[in-house]
Design a protein around this nucleic acid. Structure first.
Length: 367
DNA sequence: AAGCCGGGGCT
DNA sequence: AGCCCAGGCTT
């Protein structure tokens, strides 16, 4: 192995051992903790994950506790984190680990990889961090670091590039130090070799960083851009209860698959784009909403605009206009057309999982 | 290979 | 306000 590689592995390990962050999932060595943290850390920052991880582990301290929990509780514990299929896959996998492996995460790459929600990165992370096995764990941080240090111009959005990086990353693991080294690589990407303004002067491997020496630290890694999200206009209804439902709001549960699966929301409809409806006036908009609600068995009259809200997913941009509505009549709502409706106040919300968009609107309404 | 899945931080 | 970040699954 050449000097540049040896130097990298040695210096990075030394740096990490002096600079590793004290994180909740690093306080004890427990494969279940490693697993939960790695799933939460997919697409999510450390600072965001910390409080979720603490709450999640106190609610579900073991694989078995997670396997045996009601699904709604798991989803509720994930509320606000996003990518909710992660939570459902994690529980599915926990049931598998409970029944097939006696509740112990197996020290076996093939078995770990076969679990729901665990792909090449996460299996590598679990095998290396929890069991100190010399497996690569190549995430976005690692690809950025390696692209820069070795001055690789391959597009990191391409699967073939990831395969190359995995080979390189495995080669770099110092004998017997897979756990620390893989964490060191990711730690460097998170703290020093950051996407926007890398702190090269603080970097333990700056001297042999080919990207930096070529003055290319800001153009690396090369990555094709994602398509912009598709805009969607939606009209939503804030239907306030009366009588026995006074002080509550009508909410519904989303279908079991697809976007925001099984999460709760305000009733709303997608405004068809054809008729140039983006420029619809208020009265027309309320008419459209009234018709949409009626079609679901809700006889409610929109009375006034309440708030506008925007929310961007990776591929869709929601522009939502919320109207206050007066309820005239409610048909049999429970399980109607397989859609579950419920009146909710702050108390009921404790048990229903909402995406952040609606969570914020409802908290705002109730406070 | 491309599209589907949330949410937040930085400038 | 607009840009960027990013694993795994499904098609």
């Amino acid at each position: 192995m050449d000097v540049q590689k040896r130097y990298f592995s040695r210096e990075l390990l030394i740096w990490y051992r002096a600079n590793r962050r004290d994180l909740p999932w690093r306080r004890h060595s427990n494969p279940y903790y490693t697993w939960v943290s790695e799933i939460m850390l997919q697409q999510t920052r450390v600072e965001t994950v910390k409080p979720y991880f603490e709450r999640f582990i106190s609610k579900f301290p073991t694989v078995e506790a997670l396997a045996d929990a009601p699904e709604e509780e798991v989803l509720k514990a994930w509320e606000g984190l996003g990518y909710y299929s992660r939570a459902r896959n994690l529980q599915t996998a926990a049931k598998e680990v409970k029944t097939q492996y006696g509740g112990q995460v197996p020290d076996d790459k093939a078995k770990v990889s076969a679990l729901k929600g665990i792909g090449p990165y996460t299996s590598g992370a679990i095998m290396s961090i929890a069991f100190n096995r010399p497996e690569p764990a190549v995430d976005g941080n690692v690809m950025r670091v390696l692209s820069r240090y070795f001055r690789l111009h391959d597009d990191i959005a391409k699967p073939a590039t990831r395969a190359h990086m995995e080979h390189l990353a495995q080669e770099l693991i110092p004998e017997g130090c897979a756990s620390d080294f893989n964490q060191a690589l990711m730690e460097l990407g998170a703290l020093v070799c950051t996407p926007k303004s890398p702190a090269c002067l603080l970097c333990p491997v700056m001297e042999h960083c080919a990207g930096r020496l070529a003055g290319e630290e800001l153009v690396l890694p090369v990555k094709t851009k994602a398509k912009p999200p598709k805009p969607e206009l939606r009209y939503a209804a804030l239907i306030e209860g009366t009588g026995e439902h006074a002080g509550k709001v009508l909410v519904r549960q989303r279908p079991a698959t697809g976007l925001l699966a099984k999460m709760w929301e305000l009733p709303h409809l997608l405004v068809p784009k054809q008729a140039g409806l983006f420029g619809m006036n208020e009265a027309e908009a309320m008419d459209v909403l009234r018709g949409g609600l009626l079609a679901e068995g809700i006889d409610a009259v929109p009375t006034a605009r309440w708030v506008d809200a925007e929310h961007t997913f990776s591929h869709i941009h929601w522009q939502m206009r919320v109207f206050r509505c007066e309820l005239r009549e409610l048909m049999e709502l429970k399980d109607k057309e397989r859609t579950v409706y419920q009146w909710t106040g702050l108390e009921e919300m404790e048990h229903l999982a909402f995406p952040n968009l609606f969570l914020r609107m409802l908290k705002d309404y109730f406070q």
